[in-house]
Amino acid sequence: MSIHEQYNPGDIVYCIIRNPHAQDVANVQHAAVVQDPSNPDGLALFLYETYYPLTDEFAIYPTEAEAEAAYQDAFGLAEDREDFYG
């Protein structure tokens, strides 16, 4: 099943987003699935006032709990990261 078959316009999803200016910073952010304004046959994520084409390159989860669990698997607990970085 393609990513476009999994979601519909109006769905709210949760993404793990890395800060492009600080690669050791990431967070879970909600986004809306919308019709892609530059591709009428495609879908996009509306995130931070910007449209991003919906592709498999995004770590997208249907619930905040699933996104938080994936975040913990990838980055560990906040106190673990503080010990590592600070």
Rank of each mutant, 00 (worst) to 15 (best):
R18M: 11
H4P: 01
A59L: 11
E82S: 03
N27S: 15
E79T: 08
V33K: 02
Y7Q: 03
F84G: 01
E68S: 06
T55P: 12
E49Q: 15
P37S: 04
N8E: 15
P62E: 12
N8F: 09
E82Y: 08
L77A: 13
I3C: 08
T63Q: 04
G76Q: 05
F84C: 11
C15W: 00
E79C: 03
A78V: 07
L77C: 06
D36I: 00
N39P: 00
R18Q: 15
Q72P: 01
T50V: 07
R81V: 08
I12E: 11
D80Y: 06
Q29K: 10
P37V: 03
P53Y: 10
Y14L: 01
I17V: 15
E79K: 06
E82R: 10
I3Y: 10
P53D: 11
L54D: 04
A32D: 13
Y7N: 01
N39T: 06
Y14N: 04
V13P: 00
A69L: 12
G86C: 08
I16T: 09
N27P: 01
H21G: 13
V28N: 02
Y14M: 01
L43W: 00
F46W: 07
E49A: 14
A70R: 12
T63A: 08
L45W: 07
Y52D: 12
A67C: 02
Q35G: 01
G76L: 06
V25T: 11
Y52S: 11
P20I: 08
I16L: 04
E79N: 10
I3G: 08
V34L: 00
A70E: 12
P9A: 13
Q29I: 12
E5N: 15
I16Y: 06
A65W: 03
D41L: 07
A32S: 12
Y85E: 10
P53E: 14
A70P: 05
P53H: 13
A69K: 13
Y48L: 12
A26T: 04
G76C: 09
G76A: 11
D41W: 03
F84M: 08
F75G: 02
E5D: 15
Q23G: 11
